[in-house]
């Protein structure tokens, strides 16, 4: 960088990529989100080949590379297998810090489910049992589960 630029007021250009998106959820994902929205239920599905119960459910098992067609209704409770208490606020986040992200092994599932925990953060540990608490006004997205609460 040459000397003269040191004394020049920064020339910058501000911009944003403004593209609206409409993501297709797909048939399998729709069933999951409709169950959340209409029945306050969390459903997964089981790969016949390796018996893994997935949540969120998948059209195909990524490991066996076979389609999945068996639905499984999961409880709304589970245990925390990973967590972090987030200390910073950011507009992308669904709630104010501090809150926790957690990976929750729901009863009956074989993989973890990622969501947030808002209350009782000082009691949060690996293995803590939690329960999904649903929003009153549900729209058919992952935030129809407001958060998980410590049991």
């Amino acid at each position: 960088m040459s000397e003269w630029l040191q004394d020049v007021k920064d020339l910058t250009l501000k911009g944003q990529i403004k593209v609206p998106y409409t993501w297709s959820v797909g048939e399998v994902g729709s069933r999951f989100l409709v169950a959340l929205r209409d029945e306050k239920k969390i459903i997964g599905n089981r790969c016949k080949n390796c018996s893994t119960v997935y949540v969120p459910p998948r059209k195909n098992c990524g490991r066996c590379f076979k389609d999945i067609d068996e639905w499984v209704e999961l409880g709304s409770k589970g245990i925390v297998t990973a967590y972090t208490i987030v200390r910073y606020d950011y507009p992308l986040q669904p709630t104010k810090a501090p809150f926790a992200y957690a990976i929750i092994k729901l009863d009956g599932a074989d993989v973890g489910f990622v969501h947030i925990i808002k209350e009782g953060l000082d009691k949060l540990k690996m293995g803590t049992r939690v329960r999904a608490s649903f929003k009153e006004d549900r729209k058919g997205n992952i935030l129809d589960i407001d958060s998980f609460t410590i049991i």
Partner: peptide
């Protein structure tokens, strides 16, 4: 975008 993005995860929190 369907399952995780709305949760606000980023490189640090994940």
């Amino acid at each position: 975008p369907i399952y995780h993005r709305l949760l606000g995860l980023d490189a640090i929190s994940s």
